[in-house]
Simulated scan of single mutants.
Amino acid sequence: MKIVIVPSGFKECLDAEDVAAAMDRGVRRFDPSINTVVIPMIDGGEGFVKTIINIKDGIIVNKKVTGPVGKKIDSYFGFYQENGKRIAVIEMAAVAGLKLVPHDERNPLKTTTYGVGELIVAALDFGIDHILIGCGDSGTSDGGAGMAQALGVQFFDKKQQPVQIKGGEDLLEVDSLLAANVDSRLKNISIDVACNWKNILCGRKGVARVFGPQKGATPKQVDVLSSALEQYAGAIQNETGLDVRSLPGSGASGGLGAGLLAFTNAILHPRFDIIMDFINIEKEISTADIVFTAEGSLDFQTPNGKIPSEVARIAKTSHIPVIAITGTIGEGAELNYQAGIDAYSSIIQKPVSMESAMINAPKWIEESTYSALRKVAIGWRMTDQGILKKVSL
């Protein structure tokens, strides 16, 4: 029997490698003879740089930059060489991720992507030809304006006075911007971005309304942020002619996608397309008996390009059953049945504190995987005994 384990990480808790290891332990606890293929996945968020650098045998370049709440932090980017090109890999989660925002400071009106711009400048100083950026697990919603300022973009209010963007709320003051002084070295390199292709910047399904609450925004703050990003989009259009409001990926990482489109000429890609260039899972999935996947929270957003739904999409082309292990089950989780996930379960079996859940996550992931296989075994026995003639999922 062959089981393929293809999880993402549990945000702010475990990276994909840790989740995969726990699931593998659960399978081996059920039956040590099972052939397991373990493929930890990245989605542009936490672990993006280190996973790719490990695959490409590159190096990590450490850099002190501005964190999401405006304080200096230790961050990094990756570097490797391939086909004569010098390539930098940047992970926005490592400089402006939600994990870096203290719980008592989680207000996306006041967090910044300035450090992302500083990492881009640091990569340019390193003499690179290409930049690969992973967008995911962000703790910011400033539309990438902080990053833009670090690259040389200037913002002005109605009186043509400079505006310093320290968070999303400052975009309400922006009446115009000047992009002429953006770091000229950006013209000589290419930038590819792995992002959630379905996230857009503005409107009813804009990033402020969909993801703002996850980053600590109250309903009133969501309204403020939504208006601020609309104001920002107008200024971008007036300066560059580009309407970023509803472009695919423009809302990625709190609108960082929009800033990258407007000021760096980056090309945004569905994150799974980029990742599949580095990690080939299709062959292994097509020969599996069961596929296990995982995510920190399974809800209505999961089918929109997140790893469990993409894994399920691939599995369904070969009619392979998919089981998802999740930290929490959120609103609209049942939509994942339509996305190809045949069954899912939460590792949390009783009311617990978030702190306790995070501490016990590895053990509970293992137990949940073991329990899921015991349930599968019941189905096999019932089928063998003729009780279940055919199972249709």
Rank of each mutant, 00 (worst) to 15 (best):
R28H: 14
F30D: 01
P32Q: 13
S33I: 05
S33F: 08
I34P: 00
T36G: 11
V38I: 11
V38K: 08
M41P: 03
I42M: 14
I42A: 15
D43I: 12
D43R: 11
D43L: 10
D43F: 07
G44A: 10
E46F: 08
G47L: 07
V49W: 02
V49D: 02
V49C: 11
K50Y: 10
T51D: 03
K56L: 05
K56I: 02
G58L: 00
G58K: 00
G58P: 00
G58N: 02
I59W: 04
I59V: 14
I60E: 10
I60P: 01
V61Y: 01
K63F: 02
K63R: 14
K63E: 15
T66F: 10
T66V: 08
G67K: 01
P68D: 07
V69H: 00
G70I: 00
K71Y: 09
I73K: 09
D74V: 14
D74H: 09
S75N: 12
S75T: 11
Y76S: 05
Y76P: 00
F77M: 03
F79A: 00
Y80S: 07
Q81N: 13
Q81K: 12
E82L: 08
E82Y: 06
E82S: 13
N83C: 12
N83T: 13
N83S: 15
G84H: 11
I87R: 07
A88Y: 00
V89P: 06
M92Y: 05
A93Q: 12
A93C: 09
A94D: 15
A94C: 11
A94S: 15
A96W: 10
K99S: 13
K99Q: 13
L100E: 06
H103P: 06
H103G: 06
